[in-house]
Each structure stands twice: as C-alpha cells, then as structure tokens.
C-alpha cells in the first residue's frame, strides 16, 4: 500500500508539473506568442469571445499568480479554449474525437509488442547462443532503430500502395457509419493492421532485449537449477519458474516505455491519416493551433500517468514482495 501511495504521489506531482509547464512555457517564449495566437482569432471571434479565451489561458494582464489561478480555475471546469484549426469547436470536443482511436491503436499495438517481445526474449535466453538467439536480437534492434513513422511509410508503400492489399488511410471505410455491425468492426480491424504492425515492428526489439537479459539473470538462480535437477519438463521450467519472475522488471519498464511508444504512435497516425491525437497534433502544428497543441499535451500526459498507475497496481498484484513494504 505504501508503495502505491508513493507512486500516486509522484503521478499527482507530475500532473501538477505538466499543468504548470503548460502555463509557463507560453509566457517564457520570447516575443508574445499569446498575442500572435489571439491575432489569428481576430475576425473569427467577437471581442467578448476573445476576452473569454484570453481568460481561459490566464492572459488577463494581472499579476502572475492571479493569471495562474484563473488558468487553473478554467482548467478544472474542463475549459481548454477554442481550437483554431477546427474553429469554432471547443478544444475538449476536438480532443474527444481522437482519444478513442489513439487508445485503440496504441493500446493494441503496445500490448501485442509487449507480449510478443517478452515471449521472444524468453525463448532467446533459453536457447542462448543458438542461431535463433544470434540472429533475431540484432535484426530487431535494426528494425527498432528506424523511426516508427518511416516504417509506417514503407508498410504503406508496400502493402497499401504497391500490393493494394490493405487500406491507405483513415480508421474505417468512409462509406460506413460507426456502429457495432460486423462490417464496421471488420473495417476498423483492417484499417488498424498496418499502423499497428509498424508500431509493433519498431518496439518489439526493446521488449525482447530487456526480457532476454532479465531472463538470463533468473536462469542462473539456484531454484532453476533445482527445477532442472528435479527433472521438470523444460517448458514448465521456462514459463512457470523462470519467465514469471523475469517478467517483473519488464512490467516496471512498461509504464516508462509507454510514453515513448506513444510518441512514435502519434507520428504513425499521421502517415495513415489515422484520426487520433497524432493526426490532430499535425493539424494543430500546421495551423499554429496553440490551444489544441496544449490540450493534446495535457490529455496525453494525463493518460500516460493514469496508465503508469495501473501498471503499478498490476505490479503490486504480481509481486507479493511489494505488498510488505
């Protein structure tokens, strides 16, 4: 319990730090990006609406702590301002459009990459020095060195453009309306395949290597030798004895890696025009939509922090030793 509380404290602090960064960064920038940002709204917005937006970001002209208080008050009411790129939609509404797709793409590919990479790592460590162990890790390291979005472009070119086997863009067929019908779900799965594959290809090597090295450590433990001596079947020793314990450090790394993989997956979305946060991000960058950019930063950060906490809960459940502390 104390472990979980300490982690929770860390995440609350990190959440506060990112809220505050979000407030400070525009004010630290040289020149006045605030007025540049509001200048873009002129002609689109009534003066009253502009004033409300300024207030949402705390650009009230008052002393800094009053600006900060105003900013926080608006934030907790869920007011992130109005998007420039999707004018006159509210930033929160724009974000809500893409959140589910990003969760689907990143979530599924991270889980697949983690499971596959851990499994490959177990096998590589078990058969250390074999041809499998000698060829696969370097190959996956090489794949992992490519930018995620570049692998995505190559898959798009190969399977989507040249072979015309899989769709090139969007999350589902334009002619279908979102529903729980078989046709729609199948279309979503078909559109998910290429972007998810590129994320898995780019990230599986990392999981494999860390699993392999922790597995090698565990295989040297006395209880594994004992299991060999008892004549247990190799499969049983591999998974029930060694892999279960070797997995723990990988679980801890999971939360940390999530933020990194998410970055790559946002860029992958852009390649496939996948309608998630990454696609919104590039729209925001292209139209200098500062409120949307900051909204994406906050949402992604909060999601990563929440996922980290879930991983910690999972860790405590998996490792009884943490419960005593």
């Amino acid at each position: 319990m104390r472990y979980l509380l300490r982690q929770l404290g860390l995440y609350v602090l990190a959440a506060w730090a990112s809220l505050t960064l979000n407030f400070i960064v525009p004010r630290l920038a040289p020149g006045d990006p605030a007025s540049a940002m509001f200048a873009r709204y002129k002609g689109q917005l009534q003066p009253e609406a502009l004033a409300a937006l300024r207030e949402a970001f705390g650009f009230t002209g008052g002393p800094l702590h009053e600006q900060y208080a105003a900013y926080l008050a608006h934030l907790f009411r869920g007011d992130l301002g109005v998007s420039v790129a999707y004018f006159p939609a509210k930033v929160t509404d724009v974000l809500a459009m893409g959140l589910g797709w990003t969760a689907l793409l990143t979530g599924s590919s991270v889980v697949v990459a983690f499971a596959l990479g851990s499994l490959l790592g177990v096998v590589a460590a078990w058969r250390r020095g074999s041809a499998f162990d000698a060829t696969l890790p370097p190959l996956l390291v090489f794949l992992g060195a490519f930018p995620y979005f570049w692998l995505a472009m190559m898959l798009l070119y190969g399977f989507g453009f040249t072979l015309d086997a899989l769709p090139l863009r969007h999350a589902y067929e334009d002619t279908l309306a979102p529903s729980l019908s078989f046709a729609f779900v199948a279309s979503v799965a078909e559109h998910l395949l290429l972007p998810a594959t590129s994320i898995v290809l780019a990230s599986v090597g990392g999981w494999m290597l860390s699993m392999r090295s922790s597995m090698i450590g565990v295989l040297a433990e006395d209880y594994v030798t004992m299991a060999h001596a008892k004549g247990l079947s190799p499969l049983r020793i591999m998974f029930h004895y060694a892999a279960r314990n070797a997995l723990l450090p990988n679980v801890t790394g999971f939360g940390m890696a999530l933020g990194f993989v998410l970055g790559g997956s946002l860029l992958t979305e852009i390649v496939f025009s996948y309608p998630g946060q990454g696609y919104l991000l590039v729209q925001a960058v292209r139209s200098q939509d500062y409120p949307l950019m900051q909204g994406i930063f906050l949402t992604i950060t909060m999601a990563v922090l929440a996922a980290n906490f879930l991983v910690d809960v999972l860790y405590v459940w998996l490792d009884p030793r943490t419960r005593g502390r």
């Binding site: 860390l10 040289p30 020149g31 933020g259 950019m293």
Partner: peptide, 24 residues
Amino acid sequence: SLLTNVSLVIPGLPLAVVLAAYLP
C-alpha cells in the same frame, strides 16, 4: 530524484511539441 522521476513519466514528444512550437 523526484525531479528526475517527474520528468521521466511526462511523455517526451507532446512536451517537445509544445516547447518547439513556442520557441523560435
């Protein structure tokens, strides 16, 4: 350590985008 851990859990790319967008 707290400062380090806080920076570690804040995802890099979205923060980098916000920073890069405001800096010249």
